[in-house]
Write a protein that binds this DNA or RNA. Sequence first.
RNA 1: GCUCGUGUGGUGUAGCCAGGUCCAUCAUAGUGGGUUUUCAUCCCGCCGACCCGGGUUCGAAUCCCGGCACGAGCACCA
Length: 493
Amino acid sequence: MEKREVKERRTGLPDLKNAEKGKVVLRFAPNPNGPLSFGHARGLVINSTYREMYDGEFILRFDDTDTKVKPPMLDAYERIQKETAWLTGRKPDRVIIASDRMEAYYEHAELMLQNDHGYVCQCSAEVFKEHRIAKTNCPCRDQKTSENLNLWSMMLQRQFKPGDVVVRVKTDMTLKNPALRDWPALRLQDTESHPHPRPEVGSKYVVWPLLDFQSAVEDHLQGVTHIIRGKDLMDSTRKQTLLYEHFGWDYPETMYWGRVKVHEWGGFSTSKMRNDIESGRYPGWGDPRLPTLEGLSGRGISNTALRAFWLELGITQKDISVPLSTLYAHNTKVVDAEAPRLSFIRHPVLCKVEGDEIPNSISTPVHPNDESMGMRTWEMIGREIYIENEDAQKGSLRLKEFADITLKGAPSPVANIDSYERSDKRPIVHWITKENSLEGTLLSTSNDEIQTVQGRIEKHNFAPGTIVQLERIGYACIKENDSFILCHESFDE
RNA sequence: GCUCGUGUGGUGUAGCCAGGUCCAUCAUAGUGGGUUUUCAUCCCGCCGACCCGGGUUCGAAUCCCGGCACGAGCACCA
């Protein structure tokens, strides 16, 4: 047997099976029942990265076929498209909305009934469950094709109530895997009391496809070649493969990833977040404590870091739990080189500087490792500065880039300049002059709480959304000119 | 219960399909040190893993069988 030449370490995602460059079609299909969360990012990152690797196409599909249990949210359609572009770096090649495609699903449902590959079942869910467990056929299974078509048109004509009737795919009631036995393909929804939120859809339809049917038909219609999704949908693949066999279609290649939890968050269920927002626990989807893309980007987690994070996890089927520090480590790498440095003084203490030959201004670099970012210059005319209360307790300090001082008196100490050169090992602290700073606020998240610290923030001209580094504190995202939120964990006080 | 899937250091991940070059990769965390007028960045060192038991084989992280553990599906949710 021939041996591989060298075992090379794989980097990046593994190759796709049966993939030809330029002919790969991938998709990601969220339910628009809320904006995108951290968990959705995996599907977006993995699928869109394969698009780039294979020069293929990437479809964003809205699976909005449930109006009651997981009702879509109207503004999510736009938001999800924006968030997708933000995260993946470009727009999807195609956008499909399932609720626009109902006629196609009806057509295939009818075709399935005509070919006797499905039937209209009037058993209750409970009764059918008995059959599924007992591996026995339900009476509806033997109906004539004409009877099925007749019942189908009655469904469309609203002659049944939700729960009374369902269209099933004929598989085999003796299949080993109970999940696959004559699975339901379409059902009725009361769209009068639970209308679809899209005005053009509203109460227009009562017969709605279920995920396995809708997704299967749509994947075929769109020419999807590779499906990469969570392993919770493995049985979906098996169900859908049986449907594909009825239609004589070839099922796409599939890959799965396992379940991911984040230590600090647990899961990230859109439905649960929606409840928490509606109950007032969080003010909105963009709250920095929430694992939504909006919440994360709002506190300065970059799209590059998110991509690196998910690419590193890859597509193993293991169920894992990851600490947020992993994401933060990626973010630091992305953000540090570009983050201007600013001084923020928590619990500020005002000091009067005294000494000989005090210069008129002090200059310090915007970024210690990048001269091209320039200098920041503080006027020393007023000779009043702020230092952190905690530092003030230490008595003698080195004001960074300025002077060694000794503090005397309280509560407004005098800072006597001992030396401009560094003369000993006294601690180096950050500081700011009174005239070059404003009152400011620093927010941070911790254990589902938002903490606030008041202080003095160095004046700056950076736009909201800019990620800066507050010296000796951490990276922060500018919310407004005088308010910041910490990107990573909270202060360790 | 039935069905399916997964088990590599604290956390992830490579290697497994095509057994040897694996006293097991890389990252992150932790820890020690270096650079640095930030408790940042950067650099170096250390720490630490093949779920268990059989089997096949000259040789097993890799193949086979059996356990065990964990997860998911069995919805008229996605």
